[in-house]
Amino acid sequence: MSDPQHSLNHDIKQLIIEALGLEDISAQDIDDEQTLFGEGLGLDSVDALELGLAIQKRFGIKIDADAKDTRNHFTSVASLAAFVTAKQAA
């Protein structure tokens, strides 16, 4: 359970819970592939804005504002983790 991928996913779940003030939800309750916005976890566009800021701050990365469809990275924990990994490698 200590592989880096798993731990990054866990960190992102923890960040979602803390940044968005979610109660009664723990990291285990969020699936890696679960849709975060709209249906699924039920988050909205303001949460997406908050999460964008929190991700950039926590992982010291920048969302490339000139790239198209940057918000697709926010679909699920897995896609966010892939995005963070790619950005940190860059």
């Binding site: 566009s45 997406a48 804005l49 964008g52 490339d64 504002a65 790239a67």
Partner: peptide
């Protein structure tokens, strides 16, 4: 366009 990145791209 609710997200800042999209707003920036449209502005440019």
């Amino acid at each position: 366009l609710p997200f800042p990145e999209d707003l920036q791209r449209a502005s440019r």
